[in-house]
């Protein structure tokens, strides 16, 4: 193996799947072989069966739908406000000086710690769930977008000015398109984090959603259902990540060149 040498696409997919297979195999041997008691960890077959029951008889698809809706809702609201603010902060230093210290502070406030407060303010309805996602992703987005925009190569900025660019078209035609692929990467990453917040929000005070199903299963010691729930979250995360990556590559073909 040579450092940094790329692998063929087919090999990469095979290797990626191979680890999943290995993982499930180890799990199956540990549980079906009787090395781990059933109460602690269900085996893969039971998990798939109870997953089927969950979906077919207990309306789990609706829970999945709710969770996806909450993540996307909260994340999209956060992104819609964070995008213009982050771009402005990256482009205009006085605006950055005004917001940056507060945003840096707010970024470290753990979104999950807000849940009790949010329940007090917004009840246990959807507004509370969306707020958790919003708090968890908004400040991160703003800061990272501002940095991405602010890191635009100075020589490109100067080249644009010598070509007659005005200040506003510098932002529109250089800063934003130059930072766009990185911003798309940031959105992809933070969306991943949003997934971890939604489950926490649903563990406390929710009547639907994947997190709610997991809390319910805990009371019944149904580890098979808990694991199924966790795996579903992982799979949705994986699929959304792949989709995001593909869209990014379609939108910014130039960014992948020479990498």
């Amino acid at each position: 193996m040579k450092p940094l040498t790329p692998v063929a696409p087919a090999t990469r997919v095979t290797l990626g799947i191979a680890f999943f297979v290995l993982f499930v195999a180890v799990w199956a041997i540990a549980t079906l072989g009787g090395f781990v008691p059933k109460t602690f960890l269900a085996d893969p077959i039971t998990m798939v069966k109870s997953g089927y029951t969950l979906i077919a008889e207990m309306g789990f698809l609706k829970d999945i739908g709710m969770t996806v809706w909450r993540v996307l809702g909260g994340f999209i609201i956060a992104a819609l406000i964070a995008l213009p603010l982050g771009v402005l902060m990256g482009a205009y230093k006085p605006i950055e000086a005004f917001f940056e210290p507060f945003v840096s502070f707010a970024r470290y406030l753990p979104a999950s710690a807000f849940i009790p407060l949010l329940i007090l303010w917004a009840g246990i309805g959807e507004a509370q769930k969306l707020s958790v996602i919003f708090i968890g992703s908004f400040f991160q987005l703003v800061l990272m977008i501002a940095v991405a925009v602010g890191n635009t190569r100075r020589d490109l900025v100067e080249a644009a000015y010598t070509l007659g660019a005005s200040d506003s078209s510098l932002v529109k035609r250089v800063l934003i398109p130059g930072a766009a692929p990185e911003i798309a990467e940031i959105l992809r990453m933070v969306l991943g984090w949003a997934w971890t917040y939604v489950i926490v929000a649903e563990l406390i005070g929710a009547s639907s959603g994947i997190g709610h199903m997991i809390t319910d299963s805990q009371a019944l010691l149904a580890t098979d259902q808990i694991i199924f729930g966790i795996i579903v979250i992982g799979l949705i995360g994986l699929v959304s990540d792949l989709l995001f990556k593909r869209v990014n590559r379609q939108l910014f073909p130039w960014a992948a060149l020479g990498k």
Binding site: L156, E158, A159, T162, L163, P177, G178, F252, A255, L257
Partner: peptide, 20 residues
């Protein structure tokens, strides 16, 4: 007083816009 299109510049570093 400031840059303008009446003075074109070619730099030593490569300054083409990579997204165009």
């Amino acid at each position: 007083d400031g840059p303008g299109a009446d003075r074109g510049m070619v730099f030593q570093s490569y300054t083409l816009f990579p997204w165009l």
